[in-house]
Each structure stands twice: as structure tokens, then as C-alpha cells.
């Protein structure tokens, strides 16, 4: 099921703002990234992590994925961040400046230690590393395979353009190569690729253009800085009616095929087999999350029975 976890929209929420934390259950995004890093001033680092922990402790009816962006592993705050926040059971850690596979491995080891201490299954805490420097982009391929905890790679354009000593533009040509490299690395490792934030919260048209672009390239989700951006992102990622209709036909066809004792069937003159069924199932699950269809797709529908 984890492979089908929808992560279209990942909202940053500053860890030092109680009013915003309190509203996390209400936002319609798929995941939140509770930030202890850049959004939190130096003199509030300790207060913020306690606040986040208190929030996590009382947020029992979880309705979205919770990732905590800790401070970089090379800072003096990272370990305290983990120590305070992990007993609150977030789903995972957003790891900033994941420049190399070694950094991810280090976090993996730390998480294993915490899991043992907390009596959790090993692998409970997931990792979403940020690829946000030139070095990070170069190492993305190996970083993507550094841990089984990885749910995806997240591209961070603000830091990336800073390390490249360039300006970020709204059209984003300067990000193209980095985005592709992150995408290849993620796809090759079989994990999701999450795109960077779009900073201008008042320019919904440009947000839509950028989201359409990154969807075409292969990203399955986008980070965001304001809940108002959620509608546009979800709308772009929503499967189109024709797509949904086609996927329904595929699932229907493969069920008929299995009844006939085969795993391959022709639909409108095109061969339907496993990869096409998996893609159709992904479309339908996304459509279902958007409220476009009212069917549950089971593993059995996709893979058949033994």
C-alpha cells in the first residue's frame, strides 16, 4: 500500500507557531512538513521542538502523513530534534541537505536506535531526503538507494539555486537539469519524486504552470508554503475524466481476462498486461482520493490471486 500513498501536496508548517500547528488536521494536503529548520529562528529552536512534540502527542486522529524537517545532521540541534520529536510518532523525517548517501545512512542508523528504544518496528520512521545542493544533485542516484526507509526524493530549488549562485525564475529553465537528475534517481530506485515549493503565494497561474510542468516531467507531488496552494496542485494532479474512464476499462478487462485464466487481454486493439494494470490502478486510486470515482482497488484486482 505504501507505494500508493498519495503525496501530491506537502505543506510546510513552521514548528514554532502554535496557531498553525493546531490547524494541521484541517488542511487538505496529503502530508505536512513540520519545520524545525529554516522557519525557526535560532532562539526558538528548543521551544519549537517541545511545541511540536506536544502537538503530536495530542494529534491522535491522524488524517495525513506527518514528516518533521529536523535541522541538518551536521548541526548541534539535530539530535535533540530527533530525541524530542520521535516519541510523538511522526511518520518520518524530512532530512535537509542530503548531499550524500552517507548522510541518509547516518540518519537511518539513528532512527533504528530510536526505534529500538521506543519499542517500534525497525523501519517505522520513513525518510524523505532533500536534494538541495549541487553536490546533492550529483549524488542523487546513490542517495536514492541509501536506505529502505526512503519514500522519495524531494528537490529543494531555493537552496539549490543559492549553491549554484543563480537566481530562481518563475519559468524555471535553470532547474531543468537538476529536476531531471532527481527524477531519474527516484524512478530508478522505485521511490517518489517530490518537487520544490513555489514561493509566490499570490500567483496561482504561475503555480499552475509550474505544477503542470513538473507533473509532465514525472514528479508525483509538490511541496508548498501556503495551504491556499493546495487546490491548484490537487487540481493539476487530478486524473482527467478520459484517463479515469480508460483505467476503469482496463481493470474491468483484466478481471475478465483472469476469469478466462489469462493475465493478458486486448482492449480496443491494445494489449493489457501487468504494468498497464498497475498504472491504471494508480490512476484510479488517485481519482478516488479526488472523489472522482467511488471504487476501491484491491491488490487482488491489480495482481490477481495465486
Amino acid at each position: 500500500m505504501a507505494a500508493y500513498q498519495l503525496r501530491r501536496s506537502l505543506l510546510y508548517v513552521p514548528g514554532n507557531m502554535p496557531a498553525m500547528l493546531q490547524n494541521i488536521p484541517l488542511f487538505e494536503c496529503d502530508a505536512v512538513l513540520i519545520d524545525l529548520e529554516d522557519a525557526v529562528p535560532l532562539n526558538e529552536k528548543d521551544a519549537a521542538r517541545v511545541l511540536v512534540r506536544c502537538f503530536l502527542d495530542q494529534y491522535k486522529a491522524r488524517n495525513k502523513e506527518i514528516l518533521v524537517r529536523i535541522n541538518g545532521l551536521d548541526t548541534k540541534w539535530a539530535l535533540d530534534d530527533l530525541k524530542t520529536v520521535l516519541p510523538g510518532l511522526p511518520d518520518g523525517i524530512r532530512l535537509p541537505k542530503a548531499d550524500s548517501p552517507e548522510i541518509v545512512e547516518r540518519l537511518d542508523t539513528l532512527l533504528t536506535e530510536f526505534e529500538e528504544e521506543l519499542g517500534l518496528d525497525i523501519g517505522h520512521f520513513r525518510i524523505l531526503p532533500s536534494i538541495e545542493t549541487a553536490l546533492g544533485v550529483i549524488n542523487a542516484t546513490s542517495t536514492a538507494k541509501a536506505s529502505t526507509r526512503l519514500i522519495g526524493l524531494a528537490f529543494g530549488a531555493e537552496d539549490y539555486t543559492a549553491t549554484m549562485e543563480i537566481e530562481r525564475t518563475k519559468s524555471g529553465e535553470e532547474l531543468f537539469n537538476a529536476r531531471m537528475r532527481v527524477l531519474w534517481a527516484a524512478k530508478a530506485a522505485g521511490i517518489q519524486a517530490i518537487d520544490t515549493i513555489f514561493a509566490d503565494v499570490n500567483d496561482m497561474e504561475a503555480l499552475r504552470r509550474e505544477t503542470e510542468l513538473i507533473k509532465r516531467l514525472g514528479f508525483t507531488g509538490k511541496c508548498m508554503v501556503n495551504p491556499r496552494q493546495c487546490d491548484v496542485i490537487h487540481d493539476v494532479f487530478a486524473p482527467k475524466a478520459a484517463e479515469v474512464e480508460h483505467a476503469l476499462q482496463i481493470i474491468d478487462a483484466i478481471k475478465r481476462a483472469r476469469e478466462m485464466g489469462t493475465g493478458v487481454i486486448s482492449l480496443h486493439g491494445k494489449m493489457i498486461d501487468a504494468p498497464i494494470v498497475i498504472r491504471a490502478a494508480r490512476v484510479l486510486r488517485t481519482a478516488q482520493a479526488h472523489g472522482l470515482v467511488d471504487i476501491e482497488i484491491s491488490e487482488e484486482d491489480i495482481y490477481g490471486t495465486e
Partner: peptide, 8 residues
């Protein structure tokens, strides 16, 4: 309003 809660 531009308040996300109000919009919700």
C-alpha cells in the same frame, strides 16, 4: 479573505 481557515 486570504486566511486559509476562512477559505476552508
Amino acid at each position: 479573505t486570504t486566511d486559509p481557515i476562512g477559505l476552508q
